[in-house]
Design a protein around this nucleic acid. Structure first.
Lengths: 330, 330
DNA sequence: TTGTATGCGTTATCAG
DNA sequence: CTGATAACGCATACAA
């Protein structure tokens, strides 16, 4: 593979000149004629700059690291798309890696990004509740933070930039709206109590809800929600709130399997408004998270630098078929 | 940020020893006692190896580049998950980037991976049909190929490793099965004639189909498929085959909007079996692509080296509600 | 087993 | 404007 030295030689100029011609360092100019010669030589030799060498010589890298939970999860891919688009203009490169929900792997990935000397790390996904794990995460991020910016997409709690969707507020609005629509007996498919995002949503709902309420914990996925739904059906709630859309879909499938009709037998609401919902019937009421905006905001924060700040992202309820208005007759 | 030199000094050993202790080069051993000292020093100084420096000194990188079309597309995320899992054990790092379907950006990304000196490039997505574009792509890959392995997930046609889902065969099987189920008037929502994957599927279907057939080109997405569906409805086909699931869902939505019922008024089939389908009713007949397997196979091929070879991936039809058997009464 | 010295490809500093 | 040359941080051949 041709090196810059080779290009310089081929063009009959010095290494320094070749570097300046190809890279265009802004303080040094190169005579057009020479520049042409260098460019031509580079093309002739099929030259490709050695990114690692550049990074080392420059002492910095233009990569930004994005760590997500699961690449097949529409929540994360939505955020990733936002990050990707936002980074494009600044010519940055995104290194995407997913943890699969594994704490150890998340730490590993943070250290990996540190090794890469990434300009920033964006970490999407709920913070661990376990004290030891949180401390370990904090330590890993702190170690990185003396090198680059960190932006969290989750809950406030660590001293880094944070993008925080208003989970509690959204769930509150949902609860109030359901009350107004005549519902009085609700149940929450709440996910694990150890999951901060899940908890924020469940608590927000509970805070605003007027009436009977049953809270059923379960695993933070489709299957867990399905099982929870089966259990909850025994108590015949009027409406079920699942703390994520994916879980709401799991609940919907379980209901269908059990011969329970949504919304005739029970109303159902989710959280997130993932694209998948467009093709689901009945259309699901949910709380919309602007995923792309969330990702883009994280990039802004991370690249902007400055003191750590927390940005709240507004969410809003999308009322749809799965939660009909009971006050307007059947 | 602490360098290896600092660690060596702190531990009272030479640079070389520190390197060997932390990295464990296999031909040189380090006395356990010294190793402990180095490890302790590294932790004390919060040392993090400089990946770029390592890459340069070693003359190689352990990153593998994955280039996909769209990160929000379940087809690509499925493949990505497969790649990611397959790479894990070998300790590799995946750099994921998406082209957004833009040819120029794809070329840019290939060159970027070349700059990174990635050990392999996995390129997922249909090859361009445009001669000039194909030539440019070929050139970019050829330039990279003298440095690392290339694995294509698409159609055979370039001299690199290729993972090729049997699009034509799958579509043929679908067509035959529909004939057996009593259908005689079909239509294809075919996508753009310039899209190789779309074309393989449409042609496979046409090849095996016995009876009336109308082929309707459109853009390779949900919206295009919806418009196509509206057009096709005027001709009252018994069954419509959309060349991707996403397009089938677009068609389904369009049908619903037009008051046309699936499968009562028209049967519908897709291609891919993306996870989304689990929550769609009626359950959609489709041709299942084993996405994770496809991704994993690409990794095997790329990391295995050797002469370029093409691996065909078997697909199979999933018969579901959207294409009832007409020969069994209503 | 340990240490010394060299080179990886590039940028940046400093003279010409 | 151009050209030597010294870093950048690490791995490794070679020497001890």
């Amino acid at each position: 593979m041709a090196r810059l030295t080779d290009v310089a030689q081929e063009a009959g100029v010095s290494l320094a000149t070749a570097s300046r011609a190809l890279n265009g360092s802004r303080d040094r100019q190169v005579r057009p004629e020479l520049r042409e010669r260098v460019l031509a030589a580079a093309i002739r030799l099929n030259y490709s700059p050695h990114a690692a060498a550049q990074a080392m010589a420059r002492g910095r890298s233009d990569a930004i690291g994005l760590i997500i939970g699961d690449i097949t999860d529409p929540y994360f891919t939505g955020v990733s798309a936002g990050v990707s688009h936002a980074v494009q203009p600044s010519g940055g490169v995104v290194t995407l890696a997913s943890t699969g929900g594994d704490h150890a792997r998340r730490i590993t990935l943070i250290n990996l990004m540190r090794s890469q000397r990434a300009r920033a790390i964006i970490l999407a996904g709920a913070l661990p509740v376990d004290e030891a794990e949180l401390a370990e995460l904090d330590a890993a991020l702190a170690a990185y933070a003396e090198l680059g910016q960190v932006a969290l997409i989750s809950q406030p709690g660590l001293t880094h930039h944070t993008v925080h969707p208003d989970n509690g507020g959204g769930a509150e609005a949902l609860a109030r709206g359901l009350n107004e629509r005549g519902y009085t007996r609700a149940a929450i498919i709440a996910g694990p109590p150890t999951h901060q995002t899940a908890t924020e949503r469940a608590e927000g709902f509970a805070r605003a809800w007027q009436g009977e309420l049953r809270i059923h914990p379960c695993s933070f996925d489709r299957a867990g929600a399905g099982q929870a739904m089966v259990e909850l059906m025994k108590h015949r709630p009027e409406v079920v709130f699942a703390v994520t859309d994916v879980m709401a879909l799991g609940a919907l499938a379980a209901a269908r399997d059990a011969g329970v009709q949504v919304p005739n037998d029970v109303a159902l609401a989710g959280f997130g408004d993932i694209p998948t919902l467009a093709d689901v019937r009945p259309q699901l009421t949910t709380v919309r998270l602007p995923l792309e905006e969330i990702g883009a905001t994280a990039v802004e924060l991370a690249l902007g630098g400055g003191e750590p700040q927390t940005l709240e992202i507004d969410v809003n309820v999308q009322w749809r078929e799965s939660t009909p208005d009971l006050t307007k007759g059947l």
